[in-house]
Design a protein around this nucleic acid. Structure first.
Length: 484
RNA sequence: GGCGAGUUGGCGGAGUGGUGACGCAGCGGAUUGCAAAUCCGUGUACACGAGUUCGAUUCUCGUACUCGCCUCCA
């Protein structure tokens, strides 16, 4: 297979991907803080890195890619929600993780190999902080442990920032116990109602960044291949991860390739919590937008470009997928994805280019190739991506995901399966009535029926032999009352 | 203020130092009672200025504009 090229933020250009160990390709992606439903912006890196996971498995083998994505389940936002609702923190995080799995499964994202929770790695974090204190990269002050950014000369290298430049732009109040305004917290004290753990520095909890360093070390080692996340995490989160990890483990490289996805906007505007114009993946699913359509839209723009989420894109993606699903229905995928599609993905994950190549396959009538290629993007699968892994490798890795995905997918594959048999009978009745009208050449009546069905969400397609129909969105039988 | 990204046809969106993807829409045609769906055909695009070059949308510099990060956020 073609060599994979990836744009490495660390050096700001594309380079050929060469894993440390081709039999154990290791990738870490920053996961969610679990205090609320994932919004559409959260879904972009999930889907993008899912495609990378699939591509790496395609090249290096199904069992040779170790993909880790964490759950941050200790955080002040979670504490705030607990205080607000009076609920137990663990209840909130467990519930949110469940939602996250449901929603990301619906997008056809494979579960990573490991999904560590921060609270299960406190011990490793404490150990790492101890090492940083011992080797002079961290200091204690007023119950806090802080990382000394001046002790690490490469600080700022990933994001291209200089310490003095950033100090000049300082605009938040700085805690006076910091030696440098940019020093960041590794450990902080907890009061009675906050979650906390005993540590050499007293009862407290970890700072913002240490969990990723500790979990990556534990699960992937001192040096691993790929670290991914949103561009907004480049600074300070990823910068701080590098500083902590490289200072605690000077013999390691931490991550060799840094990948950052650009941000998502909605209808041309920045999406943010403070502006309140964001919506969740669940909102879209509940509106009847299939997970596969969401996935397709997210993949239709290259991951390093800002993407604008629009209704129009949703409609176009729906039309394309409906067409492709129609032509690949019941077709056995070819043994391998088309080389044109693989090549596009291998070129820094050019998913938009890959989709263009898939359009060409469709035009050429290579439906088996289309189906096999789509699988590499996690599209056109039998259960929205989960079974796809079975098609191109051995077995689905998370059969439990079927439970969540299957009903949704059934709805998408053909809207009819969301109908009750009574509703089907009713639609069939009117289709027969229309056929009768047509045979009498009473086209006025035939058109009246067709329009009423359309209003109810049922669109008809006549062929020589019969009339087929599709259900668009939700069937609304009340609209058929007009026919009586 | 610091750092970074972008500007491609009506819209979306790849890519390339020389033959100008791909999709949607539009237009023409096939098909249809009419539609829908499907199929075939069809496009006057590369922000602006200068430079390098035989040749630039593609490289370099500048200008304008847009956007993101630096603050919770992917």
């Amino acid at each position: 297979m073609t060599e994979i090229k990836l744009y490495n933020t660390k050096i700001r250009r594309k380079e050929v991907f060469a894993p440390i160990d081709p039999d154990n390709v290791r990738m870490y992606v920053c996961g969610p803080t679990v205090y609320d439903r994932a919004h559409i912006g959260n879904a972009r890196p999930v889907v993008v890195f899912d495609v990378l996971f699939r591509l790496l498995r395609h090249k290096y083998g199904h069992d040779n890619v170790n993909y880790v994505r964490n759950f941050t389940d200790v955080d002040d936002k979670i504490n705030a929600k607990a205080a607000e609702t009076g609920r137990d923190i663990r209840d909130i995080t467990d519930e949110t993780i469940g939602w996250y799995h449901e929603d990301m499964d619906a997008l056809g994202a494979l579960r990573p190999v490991h999904e560590p929770r921060a609270t299960e790695y406190i011990e490793q974090m404490v150990t790492m902080i101890e090492r940083l204190v011992a080797n002079g990269h961290a200091y204690t002050a007023e119950g806090h442990v802080l990382f000394d950014v001046n002790s690490y000369e490469a600080y700022g290298a990933l994001s291209g920032r200089k310490l003095e430049d950033m100090r000049a732009g300082e605009r938040v109040e700085v805690a006076d116990y910091k030696r440098d305004p940019l020093d960041f917290v590794l450990w902080k004290p907890s009061s009675g109602d906050q979650p906390g753990w005993e540590s050499p520095w007293g009862f407290g909890r970890p700072g913002w960044h240490i969990e990723c360093s500790a979990m990556a070390l534990e699960l992937l080692g001192e040096s691993f291949d790929i670290h991914g996340g949103g561009l907004d995490l480049q600074f300070p989160h990823h910068e701080n991860e590098i500083a902590q990890s490289c200072c605690a483990n000077p013999s390691g490289e931490f991550a060799n390739y840094w990948l950052h996805n650009e941000m998502l906007q909605v209808e041309g505007k920045k999406m943010s919590k403070s502006l309140g114009n964001f919506f969740t993946v669940r909102d879209l699913l509940d509106q009847g937008v299939p997970g596969e359509v969401i996935r397709f839209v997210l993949l239709s723009t290259h991951y390093r470009s800002p993407m604008d989420w629009t209704e129009k894109k949703v409609r176009e993606a729906t039309a394309t997928l409906r067409k492709w699903r129609g032509m690949t229905k019941g077709i056995e995928p070819s043994a391998n994805p088309a080389s044109t599609v693989v090549d596009a993905l291998a070129d820094d994950l050019n998913t938009a280019g890959a989709i263009a190549e898939m359009h060409k396959l469709a035009t050429d009538g290579d439906v088996a190739g289309l189906k096999a290629s789509a699988a590499l993007l996690g599209l056109l699968g039998n259960t929205m991506g989960v079974l796809v892994s079975a098609a191109i490798s051995s077995q689905p890795i998370w059969p439990s995901a079927f439970a969540n995905v299957a009903p949704l997918n059934a709805f998408w594959v053909d809207g009819k399966s969301s109908l009750s048999s009574k509703e089907i009978d009713r639609i069939d009745y009117w289709i027969r009535a229309r056929s009768d009208a047509k045979s009498r050449r009473d086209f006025e009546e035939a058109d009246r029926i067709r329009e009423a069905l359309l209003a109810a969400g049922v669109s008809l397609q006549d062929s020589f032999l019969e009339t087929n129909y599709e259900v668009e969105g939700v069937f609304d039988p009340s609209k058929l009352e007009a026919l009586k």
